Amino acid sequence: MTPQGANNARRFSKASAISWLWRQLSRWPLARLWRISSALGPLVYRFNKRERWVTDRNLAIVYPDLSIAERKTLGQHSLRHSTATMLELGHAWMAEPNKVETSILAVHGRDKLDNARTEGRGVIVLAPHFGNWEVLNFWLSSHFPFTAMYEPPKITALDPVIRHGRERMGASLVPTNPRGVAALLKALKRSEAIGILPDQEPDWGSGVFAPFFGREAYTATLLPKLVARTQARVVTGVALRIPGKGFEIHFLDADERVYSDDDVQSATGVNASVESAIALEPAQYQWEYKRYRKVVQEQQNLANFRDYRLY
């Protein structure tokens, strides 16, 4: 077997094991998954240096007024929720639809989507990495024509598993390229709903720097282009975890600046909208993501960039 063939075999074996685990966990009650998360979360915080360091660094930037002990506690709670999200992927993607629907205990703000569609306008849902965003995808695609961008996973053998899980209730997944953007525009012009991840750093040239909790963060500029061409309404959507019981869906009005035709103002509104969602329960945000990886000094290629590194 060639080295490439051996590599592919290992990836397929790993993907099969992960898929099998998700399938098994999909049969377990959420209360049990939360108990496991509560046991594993502190271990992840203690032994996964990368996750702990990035989480602690982000929390120090975002919540400078908290004591070190308070930030440590918040970081531990955050990694517990992130662990729960990973364990709940089988629930969102593979459990019986009725079981997933029943786990959604309440939906707040649905009228924001219904009213927009009644007016003949599409809805852009900003879905940050908060709570269980896969449960949010399940609910949206169960109740509305829904389109979202999708980038295949690094383990390519998992692609059909994840794609099936996200599409099984009718969601349409489109690539993260100009063809995908065109599909989003068409969906909005049909007065449908689309989902955008507002808190991932885009590639250079696809974003601007805008404040996120007072610190400049490189933020995508796709939103104002979609709004300008479709007059869509923008809301923030999250699936807040009620530990051991289920989830509550919240749709919040986006910050009005998202409608600006100025990219920086619109990006500022996007980040402010994410901040409002995080305020529901900061521990449920995925703080281990390097949101401040790109900084102004990196773009300008300053010789003393090293002095500004955050991670």
Rank of each mutant, 00 (worst) to 15 (best):
D307Y: 05
N48T: 10
L105A: 02
K225F: 12
S191G: 09
T230R: 04
F130A: 06
L113S: 00
H129Q: 09
A6N: 03
Y308V: 07
T2P: 14
A157Y: 15
I278C: 11
E281M: 10
L33S: 08
E281D: 15
G5L: 13
L197W: 00
N271S: 10
S16G: 13
T221L: 09
A116H: 08
R80E: 15
L40F: 10
G246L: 14
S37Y: 08
E151C: 04
A210E: 02
F138G: 06
S273I: 13
L302A: 09
L136A: 11
S67R: 03
A232C: 00
R32M: 14
Q299I: 11
A148H: 10
G120E: 09
H81Y: 15
D159Q: 15
R163E: 14
I18V: 13
S19K: 10
D262S: 06
T55L: 06
L302Y: 09
I18A: 05
E151G: 03
A217I: 07
L158Y: 07
L79N: 05
L79R: 03
A254R: 01
L59D: 05
T73H: 11
G246W: 12
V264P: 02
L173D: 01
W139H: 01
S191D: 07
Y311D: 01
P198A: 06
Y63Q: 04
R57K: 14
T118L: 14
L280A: 08
H91F: 15
G180C: 07
H143I: 05
K225P: 01
W139I: 04
R71H: 06
L240D: 09
Y285G: 08
W204P: 00
Q284M: 07
A127R: 03
L185M: 08
I18D: 01
F47C: 06
G195D: 03
E70Y: 12
R233Y: 08
A60P: 04
A277I: 13
L136Y: 03
A220H: 11
F209G: 00
R166A: 02
W93E: 05
E288M: 12
T2A: 13
W22R: 02
R241L: 09
W53I: 08
R291C: 11
A171P: 02
P145F: 09
A31T: 05
R10C: 13
V135N: 01
P178C: 06
V44F: 15
H77E: 09
P160D: 10
P3M: 07
R50L: 03
V238K: 08
G109C: 07
L33V: 04
F247A: 02
S276H: 14
L43G: 03
R293V: 11
S16R: 14
L66Y: 14
Y63K: 11
T73Y: 01
P3D: 13
I18S: 00
A69F: 05
L197Y: 02
G131W: 07
T118A: 15
R52T: 06
S191K: 13
A210H: 01
T156K: 11
A272I: 06
W53R: 09
Y292E: 06
S260V: 13
Y292T: 04
G122Q: 05
V274D: 01
A17D: 04
N177S: 06
I249N: 05
